[in-house]
């Protein structure tokens, strides 16, 4: 089950408005959103940003169960953040949990940070839910391409990332196969102490490494035999071009961010806890 989930990864196939936006625009949008998320100091701005994200999620057509899947891994972190704020921020006493006082500012601040973290994770998930990984690295490479001027091998880095992403499902399937094969040989009984259990991984790890190196070797030979010679002078098949949809999306986002910033701007005296 777990293995299968990893194969499908984060991408939710579809052709929604959000799916069709230029991946570069999406990356820039999510980055800008994240920055504003941390600049906004009041709840009002945060609520506006949340509303904007909700609209984005609606436009992406991703089912809530998938959002939950994206959020689940960081729930613990969010919970811990919230509790720390609740118990470690002083101020006006709100209630008492036994001997521990709970302050109004603590609850306020905890909720604020929890919401901010949640929005951060969800906005990132929208990007990965609606953009195939290969397109994502492609766009990243394109966005960073000015860096080639200062001799940073952007194209090679992007290609490395694309290949790495491309091989995740392959390796996951390979692992699944090896686990099953070794299980059939009785090789994966999870018994004994930690040393025995660590040794128990060897029947999976050794073949996996051998296969991975073989894959890498074969890929290198295949690329060379097809005249791959690095990124200089390369053209691309899938040309990315900004269009009206991207422009509309960009303008809407800018408006949202500006209004959120203004609404949630730092107001002296209102919240002394935001020192």
């Amino acid at each position: 089950m777990k293995v299968n989930n990893m194969i499908s990864g984060q991408y939710y196939p579809g052709s929604s408005f959000f799916h069709r936006i230029d991946p570069r625009a999406k990356i820039l949008a999510v980055s800008a959103y994240a920055v504003v998320l941390f600049l906004v100091a009041g709840f009002g701005g945060l609520v506006l940003l949340a509303a904007g994200l909700a609209a984005g999620i609606f436009l992406a057509g991703v089912p809530p169960s998938w959002l939950w899947r994206g959020l689940r891994p960081v729930l613990l972190l969010i919970a811990i953040t919230f509790l720390f704020q609740v118990f470690l921020t002083g101020g006006e006493e709100l209630a008492r949990l036994g001997p521990i006082p709970v302050y109004r500012e603590g609850v306020f601040r905890g909720a604020f940070l929890a919401l901010r973290l949640m929005l951060l994770v969800l906005s990132g998930s929208i990007l990965t839910f609606t953009t195939p990984p290969v397109l994502l690295t492609d766009a990243l490479g394109r966005l960073m391409s000015p860096l080639t001027k200062i001799k940073i091998p952007v194209y090679e880095l992007a290609l490395t990332m694309t290949i790495a992403l491309r091989f995740i499902p392959t390796l996951v399937m390979e692992t699944d196969r090896i686990i099953k094969a070794q299980k059939a040989r009785g090789a994966l009984a999870a018994a004994g102490g930690p040393v025995a259990r660590a040794r128990g991984i060897l029947p999976v790890l050794t073949p996996l490494f051998v296969t991975s190196f073989r894959h890498a070797d074969e890929l290198a030979v295949a690329m060379e035999s097809r005249c791959w010679r690095g990124g200089r002078g390369r053209t691309v098949r899938r040309k990315l071009a900004f269009n009206r949809r991207d422009a509309a999306f960009g303008l809407a986002l800018l408006a949202l961010l500006a209004v959120s910033l203004w609404v949630g701007r730092f107001q002296p005296g209102e919240l002394e806890i935001w020192r």
């Binding site: 094969a181 040989r185 009785g186 073949p207």
Partner: peptide
């Protein structure tokens, strides 16, 4: 011990240092 299952290209699951140890793995288990 009731089922012996060999997937395609089972040699990709070899892992021990010697042939003897690899074949002996399951009987030892």
């Amino acid at each position: 011990g009731s089922i012996g299952l060999a997937f395609q290209s089972p040699e990709s699951c070899l892992f021990e240092k010697t042939v003897y140890d690899d074949v002996a793995f399951s009987p030892r288990r």
